[in-house]
């Protein structure tokens, strides 16, 4: 019996969605816009996180050594580095190798180096970290320890860049959620009002249903289904628009941004993010309906 009633109620919801299609389409567009804003910020934040990861993958600590340091001393410093639990591997970069890396990376500056009498690049030991999530304070303590070794003249470590990128990604995400929350709240009220208009338009029908013995749940379900479908359709549409934006963005706008292109690029949402956007849309729609129908059923 419940299955039959449910079938009838779903059919009723379908009829109502179709009967008030103009109004419903507008609410779907508004919901999709709200979720699109969240989606765009999530895509931006995904990109920044990605860039941060790329940076941290290449993350290494370079310990620059005195020139002509005896091999034994180099080995001692290498052992000191390897003794640390933070380090995965250490490689020795000779002066010649440093020079060849420089000329390969900056060919336009090659002339300056060749004009010099001697090789200006010091030899170095490049240490790779085991885990990218090691705290900065642990790394700093380790660097200070190695720095005290005779023969080490300087240290280069770019973790602050990774952290900057990560915090930028967090900020973008937070701004996205803040704006998104405001817009979701707005769409919540819009859905609630659209459903209220639908309820009002069908006040007569609701009254008849009540007088011939319908329960409040029976009256409420088609409206909840409508809200659910509006929210679901809105969030799915936002994902579709976002997908198109990601495809079109680099073609039309990307190039105009020049160097900032990489920073401002949109990276597709993960499946988990898409799932939560859809769940969020469906929930917003359903809750919007619940509030307005409950208010009307008291009449």
């Amino acid at each position: 019996m419940i299955f039959r009633q449910l079938k009838y109620l779903l059919r009723a919801a379908g009829h109502n969605l179709w009967n008030f299609r103009g109004r419903n389409l507008i609410s779907i567009l508004i919901i999709s816009f709200s979720f699109l804003v969240i989606g765009v910020f999530l895509a931006l934040s995904n990109n920044l996180t990605y860039l941060g990861q790329q940076l941290s993958n290449n993350l290494a600590i370079s310990f620059f050594l005195k020139q002509n340091l005896p091999a034994k001393e180099v080995e001692e410093i290498k052992n000191t580095i390897m003794d640390s639990t933070l380090i995965e591997s250490v490689i020795y970069v000779s002066q010649e190798e440093a020079l060849s890396r420089f000329t390969a990376n900056f060919p336009e500056l090659q002339e300056i180096v060749t004009n010099l009498d001697s090789n200006p690049f010091p030899p170095s030991l490049e240490a790779r970290l085991k885990d990218k999530s090691i705290s900065l304070s642990a790394i700093t303590a380790f660097i200070d320890h190695v720095k005290r070794q005779p023969g080490v003249i300087d240290v280069q470590f770019n973790q602050d860049w990774v952290q900057k990128m990560e915090s930028l990604s967090r900020i973008v995400k937070a701004v996205g959620f803040f704006l998104g929350a405001i817009l979701i709240l707005a769409s919540f009220f819009i859905i609630s009002n659209v459903v209220r208009l639908n309820v009002f338009a069908r006040k007569n029908e609701i009254e008849i249903q009540r007088l011939v013995g319908a329960t409040n749940t029976f009256i409420r379900i088609p409206f909840l289904v409508e809200g659910f479908i509006l929210g679901l359709a809105g969030s799915l549409l936002s994902i579709l628009i976002l997908f198109l934006l990601i495809k079109i963005f680099p073609l039309y706008i990307g190039q105009a941004l020049g160097a900032a292109e990489q920073l401002l690029a949109l990276r597709p949402l993960t499946l988990k993010q898409m799932f939560w956007l859809v769940v969020g849309g469906a929930l917003t729609g359903t809750l919007g309906s619940v509030t307005s129908v409950s208010r009307f059923l008291r009449v």
Partner: peptide
């Protein structure tokens, strides 16, 4: 049909 739909009778 509405009173019957409400009672959940078969179609």
């Amino acid at each position: 049909a509405i009173p019957l739909q409400i009672s959940g009778l078969p179609d």
